[in-house]
């Protein structure tokens, strides 16, 4: 085995192949992803408490999210400013890098009773699209990652949906309305506890 091959193997072991440049002249997905770690954690696993993990997210969801931020279609603090710095090829390369990482559920404190109530609401209103406590993303529905995501981030997302700052899909709109009619804002709080309780 040549030294080069060994080194390649070493790189692959670490899951950080530098040689896989996305397009001619463009930075590799790994290189682009390194720049995100300051806020989203090494390889996209956030240490929280608010900034979301993005490791192991569905590829299409990541690409769509970046395009929404870039176009200013999705409310954000800093992401629109940052997303504007990337080409379509950059976005695809970094999304592939993060999609290839393992999703790690964030360990958070939670209220047991509320989480139980939230679990029931989730099963009834959300689970069809957000399977496995919201840890499985349906690429066709563009569903986000819920279970094990940092609670403050999810609460911001709920707030944006409620305020009409972020548009829900048709299905979600209907389900969310029914859920809210039955359980009110407390239902949202319970759902947040349920997602935070996932380990």
């Amino acid at each position: 085995m040549k030294r080069n091959t060994l080194l390649q193997a070493a790189l692959l072991t670490c899951g950080l192949s530098l040689s896989a440049a996305s397009v001619a002249g463009g930075a590799s997905g790994a290189m682009l992803a390194y720049t995100c770690a300051g806020c989203h954690g090494t390889n996209g696993v956030s240490t929280g408490p608010a900034g979301p993990s993005i490791a192991g997210f569905d590829y299409d969801y990541l690409v769509d999210s970046m395009h929404q931020f870039k176009a200013g279609e999705r409310r954000s603090t800093i992401m629109t400013r940052i997303a504007k710095g990337y080409t379509d090829a950059d976005i695809e390369a970094m999304s592939k890098f993060f999609a290839d990482q393992k999703y790690i559920l964030a360990a958070q404190e939670y209220d047991k009773a509320a989480a139980k109530r939230g679990g029931k609401l989730h099963k009834k209103y959300c689970n069809n699209c957000h399977e496995d406590a919201g840890t499985l993303q349906d690429p066709d529905e563009d569903t986000g990652m819920l279970g094990g995501q940092w609670r403050p981030y999810l609460s911001y997302t709920f707030a944006d949906y409620q305020a009409g700052e972020r548009e829900m899909g048709k299905k979600m709109k209907k389900k969310f309305k029914s859920m809210h009619k039955k359980a009110g804002d407390k239902g949202i709080a319970d759902l947040l506890e349920f997602y935070a309780s996932q380990k």
Binding site: A37, G38, C39, G41, S46, T47, P49, A50, G51, W150
Partner: peptide, 12 residues
């Protein structure tokens, strides 16, 4: 997000 950034960059 300032606090999250602090935790993440120091951990990174």
């Amino acid at each position: 997000y300032t606090y999250s950034w602090f935790n993440n960059i120091t951990s990174d």
